[in-house]
């Protein structure tokens, strides 16, 4: 991709792929492949937020994990601050792990119920090796106050907190190693509207104060638009449309993006516009057809879409779209 967001983007992924084998039968022969991520290029500039949207099973979470090298990519390269991470061993990755963190969707399942909040956060603080014991305690308090929790909660256990508070603890844990990049995997999906707004504001505030960079994965398009600078729309392992999120929201180009946008329920009665839900179901990424991945549900489909791989075309307003019919 030739598009330049910044001189050196903090994170860059070039054509990364991840296929999972599907095994069948007694001998567990590989019967086919699930192409979870099938050649994805993304870039995130320092201090920016890239939103990643798509339906369930489109590969968003796999992509998030590939970027952190929690999964090994089958192909393609990953660069962090210009350094190639792709072939690093587990040991060599250690120093990078401190700079890249993740926040999970489920604030209930992602905290150890037997550890106090303080101990959970201390694990990260200790790794920095620059603080004595007394200092570490101060640092934990500081981290807790950064995420809007009182310092005295450090001695309590996760079950004593509500969902929103647990998500705050998860964020404090991610911040404990002073990372530059945080992958937020559906961080607000499990929360109620009023709490969701608190967490979104918190994430934006921390971005500004600590100059963080986020890859923000979510399926709620309203949330993603609100928070993100750039947007990538994913479908069956491919990115279908990519560019500044305001531009894409104002005028989606790819037929799939259009369908997604049209399906957002608008909280204004009567705005019920041409309420035309899309036909068809979310297909599985198991042995997808050749050609465009969206062909089965696309209203504009033609023979060419079924025969050829579709390129990623740049447009005049600074985005990329994987559809030859709309450019």
């Amino acid at each position: 991709m030739q598009r330049s967001l910044e001189p050196t983007p903090l994170l860059k992924a070039d054509g990364i792929k991840k296929y999972f084998p599907v095994k069948r039968g007694f001998l567990q022969k590989t019967a086919g492949w699930i192409k979870a991520v099938d050649g994805v290029d993304i870039k995130i500039g320092k201090g920016k937020i890239l939103g990643l949207v798509g339906e369930s099973g489109c590969g968003k979470t796999t992509l998030g994990r590939l970027i952190l090298k929690l999964l090994e990519p089958d192909d393609g390269r990953i660069f962090f601050n210009g350094d190639d991470l792709t072939d690093l061993t587990h040991k060599e990755m250690k120093s990078y792990r401190m700079q890249m963190q993740i926040i999970f969707q489920d604030p209930y399942g992602s905290l150890n119920p037997r550890m106090t909040v303080g101990n959970t956060i201390d694990e990260g603080v200790r790794l920095l090796k620059k603080n004595g014991r007394a200092h570490r305690k101060e640092r934990i308090k500081e981290l807790l106050s950064m995420v809007g929790l009182p310092g005295n909660v450090a001695d309590r256990y996760p079950h004593e907190f509500s969902g929103g508070q647990r998500q705050r603890i998860g964020i404090a844990r991610a911040l404990s190693v002073e990372p530059e990049l945080i992958v937020c995997d559906e961080p607000v999906s499990a929360l109620d509207v009023s709490i969701q707004a608190q967490i979104i504001n918190l994430l934006l505030k921390l971005r500004d104060e600590l100059h963080l960079t986020y890859l923000f994965i979510a399926h709620d398009l309203n949330v993603v638009h609100f928070i993100s600078d750039d947007l990538a729309v994913m479908y069956l392992g491919h990115i279908m449309e990519y560019g500044p999120s305001d531009t894409i929201y104002a005028s989606p180009l790819h037929p799939y993006t259009k369908i997604l946008m049209a399906a957002i329920p608008i909280p204004e009665p009567g705005a019920g516009k041409a309420f035309n839900p899309p036909e068809g179901d979310v297909p599985t990424p198991y042995n997808p057809p050749p050609g465009c991945k969206f062909q089965g549900r696309c209203p504009l489909v033609e023979d060419r879409c079924r025969q050829h791989e579709i390129d990623f075309y740049p447009t005049s307003d600074g985005r990329y779209v994987r559809c030859w019919k709309v450019i």
Binding site: V193, I200, N201, K205, H225, F226, D246, P267
Partner: peptide
């Protein structure tokens, strides 16, 4: 508290 395009740029009410 519902995020929407018209509210972008300011902190969301919570």
């Amino acid at each position: 508290a519902i995020p929407g395009s018209s509210k972008k740029g300011k902190p969301l009410y919570s």
